[in-house]
Amino acid sequence: MTDDTPLLDVDNLWVRFRTRSGVFDAVRGISFTLGRERLGIVGESGSGKSMTGRAVLRLIRPPGMIEADKLEIHGEDILSLPERQMRKLRGGRVSMVMQDPKFSLNPVMSVGHQLVESLRAHEPVSRSEARKRAIEVLDEVAIREPERVFDLYPHEVSGGMGQRIMIAMMLLPNPEILIADEPTSALDVSVQLQVLDIMDKLVRDRGMGLMFISHDLNLVAKFCDRIAIMYAGRIVEICKASELHNAKHPYTLGLLNSVPDLEHPRDRLEVLQRDPAWREAPSVSARQ
């Protein structure tokens, strides 16, 4: 396999839900690739950003349906993959970090036990080996006294630490792709940056692909290489994070300007005037 094949290659992805009043399209034909880079996907609630992340792992439950011309992970088609292999892929080669660690960690299992279990589900390693690697990875996510934390239960750790443990768990089987769905929205501002720094460092050191899903454009701009802005199930704009200030789409500009800014006070905030034409404009391709 050459390194030119993108880690993730998505072409014309649709996510559809059948409802009583007809078919509802949550994601409407988006295309993107993910290399060894950090790709930010930004949008408001209902823009289909989370659905995109879940669709990549085929985590959409019926009545939802996933359709795509192409959905490949490292050249391998995953649309036709049987569910058994899909389960192996999830948490193995592709991992996902969810919003709130409170709901992603099992409350009746110690942190270490969960780490060991999740590793052993993907790799045939001995318990002591798994334990050793779990403690190593806890150390990697900047947890002091990893041995002590290993035996704690989820309710005994803070939100920020819980999210770092989640990241540790997701990184244990050495995935190629990490999908982070609003990984820091449930955390306090000062902890947010710390968690993001750790995630950022790990992704860079290991040469992984990161899909960072968030509603916070400024945050994403800081931590990603490329940014795709989603609106109503389509990508309306794609740009380099460093060139976000040159963004042209009125929706992107609206998002940027509607955030109150401590350093540049304004009497009134700009209000986004939604143009119906945005919905109908064809999706911008984020393939490289």
């Binding site: 408001e44 509603h215 905030l269 209000v271």
Partner: peptide, 29 residues
């Protein structure tokens, strides 16, 4: 969402002026 947040913050600014309100606001932001 941020765009809705902007609308609500503008609304609060306007209401404060119209109704001469005193605010005590809690936020992490």
């Amino acid at each position: 969402d941020v765009s809705v947040q902007a609308e609500i913050l503008n609304l609060l600014t306007d209401l404060r002026e119209e109704h001469k309100l005193t605010y005590v606001m809690v936020s992490h932001d």
